[in-house]
Amino acid sequence: MTQESAARRFVVAAIALAAAAAALVGLTLLAGASPIDALHALAEGSVGSRAALGETLARATALVLTAIAASLAFRAGVLNIGLEGQFLAGAVAAAAVGPLLSGAPFVARAGLLVASALAGALWVLPAAYLEARRGVPEVLSTILLNLIAAAAVSGLVRGALQDPRGDYPQSRALPDAVRLAPLVSGSRATAAIVAAIALALLVTLVVEATPLGLKLRATGLAPAAARAIGLPGARLRLLAFSASGALAGLAGGLEVLAVTGRLYDPFSAGAGYTGIAAALLGGSHPLAAAASAMLFAALGAGSSAMQRDTGVPGALATIVPGVLVLTVLAARARLTQKRA
């Protein structure tokens, strides 16, 4: 998770994009469709029109937030694999308090988002406690907390949070006045994406350009050395861990507020995991991770269009981001070996 030179990043990104493009062409041929049509649909469906761009941005909101959440944790040496669970915790909080909040929409939204961020931060606490007191690796505990969160969502939409009207496993709907409206008509992008990008800039600033960020990075890079110069390692780790959880929780809250309006089961298509992939692709630099998240969002929207227009199974298109991340990691490792 160290810094890389711009030249090296360029080489890595170029290799990865080439590999992903090759994979895409191969897969469409395999599915019996024309690669030209498929690529056209991919571009058209992700950035080809105002509506398509809106879909990409609507998808990107959650991914940008989980990507910066992952970067923040990774840079401080915390392997928070539990973003999916924290995302769900935030969504549950939003669905639980959202319909109860009354008053001005602005106040209700603020209350909902605070509850989501808190829920995300709280969901890391068991893992943080187990790591600090019992030495349980956070990789393990956060993965398990993801499973618990998914099961909790499934139970809640059929129990405590179920919409009393009707027979369906879904939570009560947010009032229309509270939900975020599109920024421009004909597009689905809301103010949520603006908030996500602003947070990405803020986190980048804090991590890369403040004394606190330096301490976090030092703790992540060389824990022993950081301790030796008197940095409170455990506290810094906890700070990064819970801030990471809060960002993921916020992502879940914004998803309910801006996109779905309720909690469903299953609620997430792996926003937390995609965030981790985006962070890896961006070398754990928050801004690069946010840009990678945008790329993943565009690929997601584009691959849906590919399926709609050319009949290429959606599953094939989801292989592409996987190829991207794997190539980046492999290319990076190879370049590091050469240097050593």
Partner: peptide
């Protein structure tokens, strides 16, 4: 070490610009 903006940002921005002008959907 001063962080540099990711090349990916530039690549996705390029993709945004270059794809924006394809024709209307069939």
């Amino acid at each position: 070490m001063k962080p540099r903006p990711s090349i990916l940002l530039a690549v996705s921005a390029f993709a945004l610009v270059s794809c924006g002008k394809s024709g209307p959907p069939a």
